[in-house]
Design a protein around this nucleic acid. Structure first.
Lengths: 229, 229
DNA sequence: GGATGTGAACGACTTCACAGCG
DNA sequence: CGCTGTGAAGTCGTTCACATCC
């Protein structure tokens, strides 16, 4: 039970547009590429050129972009700035998202120093760890709190997202606590599954699975491709 | 051009079994869960119990497992140890894979300390960085080499995989060098696309895309789910 | 001609339904 | 009965083909 698909927009007034999981992933790619295109001084793109630089077909791109509304002009292409705005708005990243991070190990430190998040409007505003030796110390200018204080910090900072970098065995417990404290979306770096109540979202990053996929592909050792994600 | 699907096994003698991209991802999950099941002292599982613990349907699991051969016994279930061996062998991880890592920043340090890789047979056997200040220093017991020495290190260590943790702008160049030095599979942590020649595989881990996906899901803010990857 | 938007065809993956074995 | 394996049906996503507009 628990199927896996319907991603849609509450149809405000008959607007029935839906985005698939897959297309949402591509929107992120489009966005980054479009920002580069703009930085290169181009104000227009065609589905063809965009597709070339991303290793996707032009049709695919048109299908995706068409779902944002009719932004393209036949014979001309798309206005880059307009596309960027539309994608940002669709993804909900035309604003800042605040996140807390739980489990301050090496991975956490790496993420804290990673500039990519901040550049795209994601800010880590609170650190938590159960280890008494870490509590009270500071990493990258942020103090590490006891998990007890989670609710309080979430309320004062307005954090909605949570980054989970704790060991596998404690993930579910920690996640439960975060959700109870008000977190609505989890980025989970620990292996395995996290069960969450309705209304809470989880995206997992499982490095071992990725490496095993790679090993499998190399293990087989044949055919083509440009390869993305 | 560059379609995206055929993942198959060279049909040695009529053996036409194929695995989809999707099922390969799940095999990793099965494997880890099965190892836990075994550790819990169970020697058999049914597709139903496995499915429950992974948030998948029993049918899905049977379909996947059936593609490994007829390992299940009607009325009984599957032998856990047998499944584990079959999956390991299919994924090509019934052996050790050696990898080099290029770009020794914070993320690299986190990965080096991550036990999960070693536990599953992935060993990082060489570090490289273009920064002269880093070359010659040691991280986690491994010396950082100049990229010049890549070929030599790959040959002596037998590394086949490469982990790319360099800044976005240099990814393509660095990747080209790694491939020329003999690497056949890349795990790329930098955003964007890497173009590789036929025969080389890339798996990308794009943290910003993942975070943006999460933001989108929370942004929408409705429906169900257990949530996996 | 150059490029978009889109129904229809196609293909991949999942779920259903059920035959058959232990 | 319980549980697997699998054809058939269904669903989702991508590609084709083409009408349409600048």
């Amino acid at each position: 039970m628990a199927s896996d698909e319907e991603i849609g927009k509450r149809s405000a007034a008959g607007q029935d547009s839906r985005w698939s999981r897959a297309s949402v992933g591509r929107f992120s790619l489009y966005l980054r590429r479009l920002e580069d295109v703009l930085a290169e001084g181009n104000t227009r793109v065609s589905s063809h050129t965009l597709g070339d630089s991303l290793g996707l077909t032009d049709t695919q791109i048109r299908k995706d972009l068409a779902s944002l509304g009719s932004l393209g002009q036949p014979g001309i292409g798309y206005d880059v700035a307009e596309l960027i705005a539309a994608i940002r708005s669709t993804l909900g990243i035309d604003r800042t998202w605040n996140a807390i991070l739980v489990g301050v190990g090496n991975l956490a430190r790496a993420l804290l120093r990673y500039q990519g998040f901040v550049e795209r409007g994601f800010r880590i505003v609170g650190l938590f760890d159960a280890d008494p030796e870490k509590i009270g110390t500071t990493v990258e200018g942020l103090r590490i709190h006891s998990p007890d204080r989670m609710k309080e910090v979430i309320e004062t900072t307005g954090a909605e997202l949570g980054i989970l970098t704790v060991p596998a065995h404690s993930v579910q417990n920690v996640a439960d606590g975060m959700i109870q404290a008000g977190i609505r979306g989890l980025l989970n770096f620990a292996p395995g599954i996290v069960r969450v109540p309705e209304g809470v979202r989880v995206v997992g990053v499982d490095l071992t699975v990725q490496l095993e996929q790679l090993a499998f592909l190399v293990h087989l050792g044949d055919d083509t491709r440009i390869s993305t994600r």
